Amino acid sequence: MNSSFVVKRIVLLSTLATAPVLAQETPSEAEAEAERIQEKASVIASITTDRGIVTRAGRFVIEPAFSYANSNSTVVAIEGYTVVPALLVGLINISEVQRDIFVGAVTLKYGITSRLETTVRVPYLSIDEDLRERQAFQGTPVDTLSESSGEGLGDAEATIRYQFNDGLAGWPYILGTLRVKAPTGEGPYDVDRRVLEDSEGNPIGVAFSERPTGSGFWGIEPGLSFIYPSDPAVLFGNLSYTYTIEEDEGFENGGTIDPGNIVRFGFGMGFAFNERTSFSLGYDHSVIPKTDVEFDNDLNNAQFDRIQVGSLAFGLSHQLTADTSLSLSVSIGVTENAPTTELTLKLPMAF
């Protein structure tokens, strides 16, 4: 054998033996990276609405939250008839309503398994409302002012969330939700009401003497949500349907109220500035069908129009410690029945 060939082969083998080995990701490192991505995506999706990935098995989370919502609306009520298109005979009542709502809530989350999570939320509300009215065509510049307020326990919620997959092979995380809302707050038909009258003593409407803090109805809400990490962004969305159980509210002549079921959907995106700070932007919309009021005598049955509630929300989240984060979100109403603005501050702490 050629001696030069033998020398070259020995040198080559020696070089390979002493060459640095390329770093390869171990299974434990890959799992840690997947868990980091999952937690980051969950935080981003939960900044504006609670739709993150389920809590890890055995982990307990306490989330105190505080929110403030303000709404202003002007309502024009017309009672009369039109003689010609430009001439109206009757009464026009113009009302301006300003409402401030403060909500303090505590949410408890617990991861039962790696796929299953349970949540309980208990809110406490304080509501202040100012109503200013003026009757047009009455020849008076005087406004009728009235105030009402209320505070107390709101409607408590219990939720079970299940994660169907691990978000592998290019699939988004898909989660199913079942939420039950109990009428623990004081409903609209549990508080006193007063009749509003014009300057001549004629009734023109009904107002609450005290603001209700709850809906007064049981609600069952199944839904689906998805979270799709797409570096550097995270896409998310949700769709749900709330079935509201009609109730007999104890009218003098008997009858029931069906407040209508609710269709909710939302979508948005967010991204992380760094390992500790994240940003989110989303849109949420609720469609509330017509409310039916049925009396036993069928004489005063009523049906109220469908309501559209849409809001655009954005927020920031900052990781304070390994188990604690702070998030602030701002929601702006884009439909007539949505709150004008809403600020929400959350401080989830994991144990």
Rank of each mutant, 00 (worst) to 15 (best):
F5R: 14
F5L: 15
V6D: 12
V11C: 10
S14Q: 09
T15H: 11
A17L: 14
A19R: 07
L22W: 10
A23F: 11
E25V: 13
E29N: 12
A30V: 13
A30E: 14
A32K: 15
I37A: 11
E39H: 12
V43E: 08
A45R: 00
D50W: 00
R51I: 11
R51Q: 14
V54D: 01
V54Y: 01
A57R: 15
R59C: 03
V61P: 02
V61I: 15
I62V: 15
P64A: 04
Y68L: 09
A69D: 07
S71N: 14
N72V: 10
V75D: 13
V75S: 13
V76F: 04
G80T: 06
T82A: 10
V84M: 11
P85A: 08
L87V: 15
G90A: 07
V97E: 10
F102M: 11
V103E: 14
A105P: 00
A105W: 00
T107L: 04
L108R: 03
T113N: 07
R115N: 11
R115G: 02
E117R: 06
V120N: 01
V122G: 00
Y124M: 06
S126H: 08
D128E: 14
D128S: 14
L131H: 07
R132G: 11
A136F: 08
F137K: 03
F137N: 10
Q138M: 11
Q138S: 13
Q138L: 11
Q138Y: 12
G139H: 05
T140L: 12
E147D: 15
L153N: 01
G154T: 02
D155S: 07
I160F: 09
D166R: 13
G167Q: 00
W171R: 12
P172K: 06
L175M: 15
T177I: 09
A182Y: 06
A182R: 05
E186Y: 06
Y189T: 13
D192E: 15
D192R: 13
V195T: 15
E197V: 14
D198K: 01
E200I: 10
G205C: 04
F208K: 05
P212F: 08
S215W: 02
G216N: 08
F217L: 02
F217Q: 00
G219P: 00
I220A: 03
S225E: 09
F226M: 08
I227S: 02
Y228Q: 07
D231N: 13
P232Q: 07
V234T: 12
G237P: 02
Y241C: 03
Y243R: 08
T244L: 08
E247M: 06
D248P: 07
D248A: 14
E249H: 10
G250S: 12
E252H: 08
N253H: 09
G254H: 10
T256P: 03
D258F: 01
D258C: 03
G260M: 04
N261F: 06
N261P: 05
F265V: 00
F265Q: 00
F265M: 04
N274R: 10
D292A: 09
D296T: 13
D298C: 04
L299P: 03
N300C: 05
D305P: 01
D305G: 11
Q308S: 12
S311Y: 02
A313C: 03
S317I: 02
A322V: 09
D323V: 11
S325F: 04
S327I: 02
S329M: 03
S331G: 09
T335E: 05
E336Q: 14
N337S: 15
T340K: 12
T340P: 05
T341L: 14
L345C: 06
A350M: 06
